[in-house]
Measured scan of single mutants.
Amino acid sequence: SKGEELFTGVVPILVELDGDVNGHKFSVSGEGEGDATYGKLTLKFICTTGKLPVPWPTLVTTLSYGVQCFSRYPDHMKQHDFFKSAMPEGYVQERTIFFKDDGNYKTRAEVKFEGDTLVNRIELKGIDFKEDGNILGHKLEYNYNSHNVYIMADKQKNGIKVNFKIRHNIEDGSVQLADHYQQNTPIGDGPVLLPDNHYLSTQSALSKDPNEKRDHMVLLEFVTAAGITHGMDELYK
Score class of each variant (00 low, 15 high):
R72L: 15
S85T: 05
Y91C: 02
G188C: 15
K112E: 03
I187N: 11
N197K: 08
E114V: 10
F26I: 01
Y199N: 05
K157V: 15
D209V: 03
V175E: 11
I127S: 12
T61A: 14
Y144C: 14
K125E: 08
S27N: 08
L220R: 12
V92D: 03
N163G: 12
I127M: 14
G66D: 00
L219Q: 01
F70I: 06
I97L: 04
N184T: 07
E4V: 10
F113C: 06
R167S: 05
D154V: 04
L6V: 06
A109S: 15
V60L: 04
K25N: 11
I166M: 06
H147Y: 06
P53S: 01
M77R: 05
D172A: 06
S64L: 01
M232K: 11
L43R: 00
N211T: 14
R121H: 05
D35Y: 02
G32R: 00
E221D: 03
I46S: 02
K213Q: 04
E31K: 13
A109D: 00
E4G: 13
T48I: 04
G9V: 03
P186T: 13
I46F: 06
T37A: 11
P88L: 14
L6R: 14
N169T: 14
N104S: 12
L206Q: 02
D128V: 04
D35G: 02
I187V: 14
E141V: 07
L59P: 00
T117I: 07
S29T: 15
D179V: 04
K130E: 06
P186S: 13
S207N: 06
V218I: 14
D154G: 09
A36S: 07
F164L: 06
D20H: 05
N163Y: 12
L52M: 05
P55S: 10
A86T: 12
K213E: 14
K84M: 02
S146G: 12
I151T: 02
K157Q: 07
I228V: 10
I228N: 08
D75E: 11
N120D: 02
K130M: 09
K130R: 12
E141D: 14
N184Y: 01
Y150D: 07
L17Q: 00
E114G: 01
F45V: 08
K139E: 07
F98S: 14
K165E: 13
N169Y: 08
K161R: 11
D20A: 09
Y105F: 15
Q68H: 06
E89D: 11
F113Y: 09
L41M: 15
G9E: 08
P191T: 09
V192A: 11
V67L: 08
F129Y: 03
K78R: 12
Y236D: 14
V54A: 01
N22T: 01
T37N: 14
H76Y: 13
D172V: 05
T8S: 11
T8A: 12
R95C: 01
M152R: 08
T224I: 06
I122A: 02
C69R: 00
N184S: 06
D81V: 00
G231V: 15
S201T: 10
K161E: 12
K157E: 14
N184I: 08
K161T: 14
I187L: 14
N104K: 11
Y65N: 00
D128N: 09
F70Y: 03
Y142D: 04
G50S: 02
G159S: 09
G137V: 02
K155E: 13
L41Q: 01
A86P: 04
K40E: 04
I122F: 00
V162A: 15
E33K: 09
I187F: 08
